[in-house]
């Protein structure tokens, strides 16, 4: 069991946690946080793959590292945009949820509880 194994498993678990959170956490902010967790898991996956590609002199393949840095930038801007949307929604409509429909329609019945 080495670095790659431990953190590979860790990355996969973080991905699973993020997925569950994105689906099951009801508040939009929690979904945004869970998305960040999910993204972090995927980046760790890249990190593990980069670590596997280590050669003499370089501890980690630089290409996955570069991809992760690009990905982090994108994920952070996405988070900022999502939060700006959420705060604006809160200002216009009060407590914000994602699961209400266009205003002309009645609220759908809950499914499964």
């Amino acid at each position: 069991m080495g670095t790659v194994t431990v953190f590979g498993l860790c990355a996969a678990a973080v991905v699973g946690l993020g997925l569950y959170g994105v689906i099951a956490n009801p508040q939009p902010l929690r979904k945004i946080i869970a998305f960040n967790l999910l993204g972090s898991g995927v980046f760790l996956l890249f990190g593990v793959i980069g670590r596997r590609g280590a050669v003499a002199g370089i501890g980690s393949d630089p290409v996955p590292q570069a991809l992760v840095i690009t990905g982090v930038v994108v994920a952070f801007s996405a988070t900022a945009l999502a939060i700006a949307l959420l705060l604006r929604l809160f200002d216009t409509a009060g407590p914000a949820t994602l699961d209400s429909d266009a205003p002309t329609r009645p609220r759908p019945d809950r499914f499964g509880g």
Binding site: I23, F90, G94, P95, G113
Partner: peptide, 15 residues
């Protein structure tokens, strides 16, 4: 900023 909304946010999905 959103914490006032907390009690009114929708319920968690069913079991």
């Amino acid at each position: 900023r959103l914490r006032d909304a907390e009690p009114m946010a929708e319920a968690a999905p069913g079991k």
